[in-house]
Computed example of a mutant assay.
Amino acid sequence: MTTPHSSFSNSFVLQRALLKPLGAVMLALCATVCATQSHAADLPVLKVGDQSLQTRGILEASGQLKDLPYKIEWFNFPAAQPLGEALNAGAVDVGGLGDAPLVFALAAGARARAVAATRSNPLDLAIVVGAHSPLNDAASLKGKRIATTRGSIGHYLALAALKKAGVPVSDVTFVFLAPADAKAALASGSVDAWSVWDPYTALGEARDHDRIIANGVGLSEGLSYQVATERAIADKRVQLADFLRRVAIGQRWALSHPDEVAAMQSKVTGLPTDVLKTVYQRGQVHPVAIDDSVVAAQQRTADTYEAANVIRAHLDVRTSFDRSFPLP
């Protein structure tokens, strides 16, 4: 016959038997979580600057952010100028800049070098006007006000387009604004044209029926770079090399998967999927090796800025490249 005492005793033993493995499991789980958190905390950090989350969107969509042996801290910028300033200040380790913004950043004293390059079809680089504007080409910009971001690829395009059309720079008024402010100025009529790049170009065409009166074909080299600080090149070389490899793989993948990239980019940025699909389809961004032709093209860009007094001194771009990161 079982007594209340023996019943209590058996129940206590049973609970101890059940709790013992449960406690072991909890301890093991805690150890795993703590070890994971400790491991994550111990991972080196690469600080990456991005523009309109374009690099991150490609890496996310192509699966290149999986199994990173380091941690990425993302810093998003609306245009190249503030990203260049962040590189100059050492606030980011690496970031994407167009050829003209790289010249502008280097002229400002940035201790950074181009470590990877891409070419694109510069259809995405354009001078746009409102839907009902009477302007129809670069020559018609004489006497007009052109919005752009100082030192940007838009600034470069405007200078090159005016030169080709035979319009002296002194015959136009540049209004230097961030993209959001430039768009508002164009919409309100405070400026006559806006020299800009995708995704802003595509968004303006789709949403506001802006018209392109000139694009970068035949005027822009179509070059962009991943630019790293000299400190990052020295101190985070392993992480930087891995990141550049993943970016190149992602860019090649994106060429044949515009729908997937646009869908992922839309989730990240909130921009319409159809607009982003236009961006990727017409840009055709693809990685290229940093060779003598790339360096020569970059020198032409620097010389154009020098001739227009955007930069005050001659810049020899050869020292602004690091060719030690091979193209995968």
Rank of each mutant, 00 (worst) to 15 (best):
S320W: 13
I212W: 05
I72T: 01
Y280M: 07
D50I: 07
F12P: 01
G96F: 01
A139C: 08
A193P: 12
T201G: 00
K163A: 12
L315A: 04
P78K: 04
R119P: 02
D124A: 06
G95C: 03
A178K: 15
A161N: 12
L186Y: 05
V175N: 13
H286S: 15
A105E: 05
P134F: 06
L276K: 11
T173M: 13
A228L: 08
A147W: 05
R207P: 00
V25F: 08
V92H: 01
F321K: 00
Q37W: 15
E306C: 05
A241V: 12
A248E: 06
T149D: 01
F77R: 06
D124M: 05
F325W: 13
T173G: 11
N88H: 12
V295Q: 07
A248S: 07
F176S: 09
L83E: 02
F77C: 03
V175P: 10
L43T: 04
V45R: 10
A313T: 05
L223Y: 03
L203Y: 00
H5D: 10
A17R: 13
F176T: 05
P328S: 08
Q37G: 09
A89S: 11
Y225A: 01
A116P: 06
L315Q: 12
L186E: 07
L327W: 03
V169G: 02
G222N: 09
D124C: 06
N215W: 02
K47Y: 05
L240H: 02
V25I: 15
V196Q: 12
T3W: 08
L59F: 03
V129W: 06
N215I: 04
A182L: 09
V45S: 03
K142Q: 05
S133T: 08
S52H: 11
A214Y: 00
T2Y: 12
C34S: 14
E230G: 15
L29F: 11
Y305Q: 11
S256A: 12
V167S: 03
G250M: 09
Q54D: 04
S266A: 14
A112P: 06
S188L: 10
S324L: 11
D292N: 14
A126E: 12
S220D: 13
P122K: 15
E85P: 01
G90M: 12
A31W: 01
L219H: 08
Y280H: 11
